[in-house]
């Protein structure tokens, strides 16, 4: 079972989307940004999702601080909707924390969920 922690803004909306699109294959949990990211760092959870106004600000700032910038990926930004290929590549490259804008929650979360499920079924 893949474990995903969710922090930042619009958390309930993100969790509902993960639950809907993961078809029971992902266990999603709403956490604070710090404890959520710390669990990922310790390997107790696999991924961290966060939304904020810019996709790279509050969303993944604690992830950048704790996991390092190279483990974080901004999937969408204001004016730049998420792209499926980029997200798939980010998952393949081993990115652990995904940030996106509140505007793009509905678009982005299903794409990341799909990419994660694909990657974990290949393994």
């Amino acid at each position: 079972m893949v474990k995903v922690n969710i922090g930042g803004m619009n958390t309930q909306e993100i969790k509902d989307l993960v639950d809907k699109f993961a078809e029971g294959k992902i266990e999603a949990k709403i956490t604070s940004d710090i404890s959520g990211v710390q669990e990922v760092a310790k390997g107790e959870a696999d991924y961290y999702f966060g939304a904020c106004a810019t996709g790279g600000g509050g969303a993944i700032s604690m992830a950048i601080a704790i996991l390092g910038y190279s483990k974080c990926f901004t999937a969408s930004m204001p004016g730049k909707p998420p792209r499926k290929e980029e997200i798939e590549k980010a998952v393949r490259d081993g990115k652990k924390a995904f940030g996106f804008t509140c505007d793009h929650v509905q678009l982005t979360v299903p794409m990341i969920v799909e990419a994660i499920l694909e990657a974990s079924s290949v393994k």
Binding site: C52, T54, G56, G57, G58, A59, I60, S61, M62, I64, A65, G68, Y69, T74, M77, G99
Partner: peptide, 27 residues
């Protein structure tokens, strides 16, 4: 707020100015 946690990467020498400025521009 998202640029702030990346600044130590520059201060502690893990990132170059150009990379940081590109990220700042993108954000």
């Amino acid at each position: 707020d998202g640029l702030r946690p990346i600044i130590p990467e520059l201060i502690e020498g893990r990132m170059k100015r150009v990379e940081l400025a590109t990220i700042a521009f993108g954000l």
